[in-house]
Amino acid sequence: MAETAVEPRWRSYGTRRRSTRTVRVRTSVALVAVTVLAVLLVPPLIQLDQQAVDLALKLQPPSWAHPFGTDDVGRDLLLRCVYGLRVSLFVGVVAALTATVIGTAVGATAGALGGWFDRGVMRLVDTFSSVPHLLLGIFIVALFRPGVWPVVVSVGLTHWLSTARIVRAEVLSLRSRPYIDAAVSGGASRWRVAVRHLLPAVLPQAALAAVLMVPHAMWHESALSFLGLGLPSHMASLGNLIQTARGSLLAGQWWPTLFPGLFLVVPTLAIAGLAGAWRERINPRRRSELML
């Protein structure tokens, strides 16, 4: 009797845990899918001009005609938000990829070569890490004319540091495995060991770092645009939208701030949730943290 009483409780605990996990994962997948589809399909399918100004309709609260309301020059906010998300997501993905490629290359080289090269590179990484990302990003952005690419470059160049650290640590732990000894003894060159054995082993970690970097990069883009340093202000990006909406927020108009804010928060949380689930799969030991 005792056994039959205990076992179902264990089972129900197990299934409940698993189901919450899949609900989280499914929600994340659905939200990411909706985001990506909206961003890819809305501009070519819906032939509305996101820049269309209609001063008669300025600062309208949400209605059926304009579900998210309109901004201070009468542009439809739903359309602006989708275009803004498009720009932010593009910047986020490209910047994250740039940062990951640089970080993986630097980290793998430092870890694989070791010695003075490793020490030098890692001190450089420490130096860059000691300066706040945003400050360094502002510095880089300020060197160029406003546009998408300076923002991508700025975020990409300031965010490879953590990836480099992760990849280097991974390479260091792999480097002392006997199978690397076996490869050396089998005549493999340094390059071959790196490309054939080390890189494939760190790729899952690097890819995870890249996905986690996307929301982070989106926030950085928004922060730069919010500060007026990122994208030109006519360009709808989430940061720009929130920035221009500040004035109307004080006048009691909440919708120009709330909806772009939600468009920033919800996709980033969804991507982070997806990456978290993935991390649990490749590294079940570090289950508790959720890095944003």
């Binding site: 006997p178 199978y179 000894d181 076996a182 003894s185 089998g186 005549g187 054939r196």
Partner: peptide
Amino acid sequence: RTAFGVVFQQPRLSVD
């Protein structure tokens, strides 16, 4: 290097 053929104690750790 290739004049030596090396076999290690733990096969699991000595293969990619």
